[in-house]
């Protein structure tokens, strides 16, 4: 049995300033929550006949993240990049990724990270899955081949669930369960000598500029504000029981717990 896995990864901002941060060389990195998704795919490749394709939508600098993915062990990489994509929200991102997945062709799994370090929505995985009509499971910590089918374990709050999953399917990986391997010099050197990077633009995916980017996105960012939290410290006196009761009362009065 051979497996084909598409891993969606994003190059994220390391630090952002208010008012339209630009992703560029030197301030971007492979989303730390996507590394576990790559790791999960490459672990499957380590144990069975599998091929891994890393897919990213983003500015040119995202090619660096795709290089790293290949150095970790991905076989090929696809970059969807186009000026028209600037300002795309999660829905448009999911649409574009879904189109790219269709263009890639047959596959068994799409892996996602749980969320991104710079936008933190966690929406792109499930949205892409639903656009493609795929079953989706988040928080995945283990995958096992059982009698020719897949058993997928995932964590929801403190529960662990086991699901029988039919492929093709989309999964988002629990970052704690798949500690990513380091990017090695041997891997990087291989990528530089034989890069397998396909680059597509919006037209290649059969989309128009109006369908994507800021114009295609229903989300409107009305305002961005810097928030600050004023922390203060209060020592509660008394024995542990009294302290706990005083703390509960304070939190309840402040509307932080219960009703």
């Amino acid at each position: 049995m051979s497996l084909r896995i598409i891993v969606c990864i994003k190059s994220v901002l390391k630090a952002s300033h208010l008012g339209g941060p630009q992703r560029a060389v030197g301030n971007s990195e492979l989303n730390p929550f996507d590394r576990p998704a790559l790791e999960a795919a490459i672990r499957l490749k380590d144990t069975m006949n599998a091929s891994v394709i890393a897919l990213s939508m983003g500015p040119e600098v995202s090619a660096e993240a795709l290089d790293e993915a290949q150095a970790m062990g991905a076989d090929e990489a696809v970059l969807v990049s186009d000026r028209a994509l600037a300002g795309s929200d999660t829905l448009v991102t999911a649409k574009v990724l879904a189109k790219a997945v269709q263009k890639i062709g047959a596959f068994d799994f799409i892996f996602f990270g749980t969320r991104t370090a710079d936008s933190d929505t966690g929406q792109v995985g499930p949205q892409t899955a639903s656009l493609l009509d795929l079953p989706f499971l988040g928080g995945v910590k283990k995958m096992e081949l059982q009698h020719g089918g897949w058993e997928v374990h995932r964590v929801v709050d403190t529960w662990e669930e086991a699901w029988q999953v039919q492929t093709p399917a989309a999964l988002a990986m629990d970052p704690r369960a798949f500690i990513p391997r380091p990017v090695g010099l041997v891997g990087l050197s291989q990528v530089y000598d034989q890069p397998k990077l396909w680059q597509w633009n919006v037209a290649d995916l059969g989309l128009t500029a109006e369908q994507v980017g800021l114009t295609g996105s229903p989300t409107r960012v009305a305002d961005l504000k810097k928030t600050t939290h004023d922390r203060s410290c209060r020592i509660i006196e008394g024995n542990p029981l009294e302290q706990a009761e005083a703390l509960l009362e304070m939190l309840a009065l402040a509307g932080k717990i219960g009703s």
Binding site: E29, A63, D67, P182, V183, G184, L185, L188
Partner: peptide, 19 residues
Amino acid sequence: HDPILTDKHRIVRRSVRDF
């Protein structure tokens, strides 16, 4: 940001630094 280096050198640096 180091204009003397190419993209691939930057990735080498980042990977070694992470490790």
